[in-house]
Computed example of a mutant assay.
Amino acid sequence: MCFVSSSDPSPPPQDTRTPFLHLSNLEEGHYQFILQVTDSLGQTSNTSVYVYVQQPSLAAPKANAGQDMQIVLPNTTVLLDGRGSTDTSLSTHWVWTQISGPNMAHLAYPNQSHTSASGLTKGEYQFLLTVWAAEDAGKNTSDLLAVTVRQEHNVVPKADAGGDFSVTLPVSAVVVDGSKSSDDVAVTRWLWERDATSLAAGHVINGSDHSPVLLFTGVVAGRYVWRLTVWDDQGASSSNTVSIIVKEGKWVELM
């Protein structure tokens, strides 16, 4: 009994004088093997078998970013789940990117099949999932996911002028921080106004009376009172006051 290769582009097989032929390290192509058997009288008979070796057919991963979704404030986090994608493997690469939205969301793990997107605000977002096989980066596919963030009930914003404090002369400028004011969506307008009980001396720097942080200079000793009012995008507002005591400094005369 003997196997003979008639169209083998690789080295001939080993152990050909056996009923079972073992092949290894075959290259792409067509192979023909001839089996010849001989009996005790020396009579022979032949038959042939064909082997076709082809490159594996690797389908590109197909991205599936999941169904579009809606959330309602005060919820500001969603799960982006691409585990419904097909033809994936341990070597599949994943990338989540934000295409649009009213602000930039925070993606916890943008290079994994699923991740959380947090810090969302009212409006429409679009996130894109792109997947590809490590063996062929050119075969990438993408899928788009839409997330709608709704606001069912408007909450009045909360003004926070920072709390009363004191400073001692001389000071180049007084800083009053109202940036901790808050809203369920966003504060859209700020206004600092001097209270009627406040000293009139001093002036605001660089239009900061329309910003979260008020800067004013030219102060003298005494009490200043400022009122901060904030608004949201639906016109709701609230106010808060802050008192600043400006103290005389201790002057030391040098002889």
Rank of each mutant, 00 (worst) to 15 (best):
A105S: 12
G178V: 08
P13D: 00
T188W: 07
S48H: 05
S238T: 04
T86C: 12
W192K: 02
D160H: 11
D68Q: 01
T77I: 12
E124W: 09
T217C: 03
A200Y: 03
G82W: 10
A201E: 05
F20K: 05
L21E: 03
P157N: 03
A201P: 00
G218L: 06
A161V: 02
S211D: 14
M69S: 09
A196V: 15
V53P: 04
H93C: 15
Q14L: 04
K139A: 13
T92P: 11
S100R: 08
V4S: 01
E152Q: 13
I99Y: 13
V131H: 02
V187T: 01
P56H: 05
T38H: 00
T88S: 00
S238Y: 01
I245L: 12
A236V: 03
D68V: 02
Y224N: 03
A133D: 14
K62M: 15
P56C: 07
I99N: 15
N206V: 02
S237I: 05
P11R: 08
T88Y: 01
L199T: 06
I71D: 07
A173R: 04
G138L: 06
A137D: 10
L120E: 12
Y31H: 06
T44C: 00
E135A: 15
S166T: 04
A59Q: 13
P13R: 00
L214F: 02
A133Q: 03
C2E: 01
S40P: 00
P102W: 11
R227W: 02
H153Y: 12
L107G: 07
I34M: 06
G123H: 10
G138N: 12
T38M: 00
Q36H: 02
H153F: 10
H30R: 13
S181L: 05
D177A: 07
T92A: 11
P12D: 04
V230T: 10
Y52A: 09
S166N: 04
P13H: 00
T121A: 12
S89D: 06
V155M: 13
P56I: 05
D209C: 08
S166Y: 04
V174R: 03
S142D: 13
G119C: 08
Q112F: 15
H30C: 10
E27V: 14
L145T: 01
H22W: 03
V149M: 00
V78Y: 09
G207W: 07
S45T: 09
D233G: 05
D232M: 07
F33Q: 00
G222H: 02
S45K: 10
H30G: 11
V230K: 05
W226E: 08
K180A: 13
V149H: 00
S182A: 14
G162H: 01
L254G: 04
S57F: 06
V176A: 03
F216D: 04
S181W: 07
A159W: 07
S172E: 13
S10L: 14
D81C: 03
L73K: 13
D233F: 05
Q36L: 00
I34A: 07
T77E: 11
H106P: 01
V220H: 10
V213I: 13
S24R: 12
K62D: 15
V204G: 10
V131M: 04
K139S: 14
P74G: 08
S113Q: 11
L128R: 14
E248M: 04
G123M: 09
K158D: 11
A146C: 06
T168K: 11
L128K: 14
V246P: 09
K122W: 05
L144T: 15
H153E: 10
T141P: 08
L58S: 08
R227F: 03
S243H: 09
L144S: 13
Q98N: 11
D87V: 10
I99P: 13
